[in-house]
Amino acid sequence: MASRFKQALDSGKFVITSEVAPPKGTNLEKMFHHIELLKDKVDGINITDHQSSVMRYPSLGGCLAVSERGGEPIMQMTCRDRNRMALEADLLLAYSRGIRNVLCLTGDAVPVGDHKEAKGVFDLDSLQLLRAIRQLTEGKDLGGNELDGAVEFCMGAIVTPEAQPIEPQLIKFEKKVEAGAEFFQTQAIYDLENFKKFMEYARKFKAKILAGIVLLSSARMAKYMTQNVPGIFVPQALIDEMSAVPKEEMLAKGIEIAGRAIAALKKDKICDGVHIMAIGKEEVVPDILEAAGL
């Protein structure tokens, strides 16, 4: 049976996903709180996988917590830390425990994180992981052996509409669609005009596109991201808009900007939904949804 998230994607409704980051340690209270806060307001909750190469409680553990609380988990899976055998085994475990959605990522580089001397594995890449899941779905592992019980996942991937140059990204996007990616959650987008151009192209493919919405929590963060984070461009007009308000009102302004973007994307049917990343400010995701009129 199709996952609840997959049913939402196929229903034609404007799909909302958000994400929760597991803690560094075994105190899970805050993660549980964020899951409770979001589970009835979104169609799927991504659990990040050692995001930015910082070691944390695992994505699979966070996904189980989402399931146990009645939410719909989307398991983020990177290729940075596990070879193909470990990835396959975790997919078997995830499936056996009711997880039905996987977001396949190559993973950030090890040196950007907090275990700089660790070995980056990258035995597979995001594309090969998508194909591996398809093979597991067909009842075979990557060694070509028969499985006693297959898997079935709704598979997704990411794309960076603001990458420069864009053409190599689009080639990879098409390879991911061919590999069976059913949905894409994009890197943060702020320039809706540019995103519309990307969507004119992406509409040619059957995969559903959820626009990445990253909450701007301060003018400084907006400037930092546009200058330092690959594939993120924050238009000067938005940085100015953030800078124009007093510091204590910046978060509220960021919520307003995010809500406005979501409302515009939905109203003009630009894409199939949004993926909201509040990065450390998960508490305000319901406020963003309210600001978007959802």
């Binding site: 993973g107 040196p111 950007v112 990258f122 890449d125 594309l127 420069q164 390879k175």
Partner: peptide, 27 residues
């Protein structure tokens, strides 16, 4: 940096690599 064989990752940055701004993105 990651030894990827199927195209660039999302860390490609105006033709440079996110792990080293001096390094060209191979892809």
């Amino acid at each position: 940096h990651k030894g990827l064989v199927n195209g660039p990752c999302g860390g490609t940055n105006n033709g440079r690599c996110e792990v080293d701004k001096e390094k060209d993105c191979a892809w």
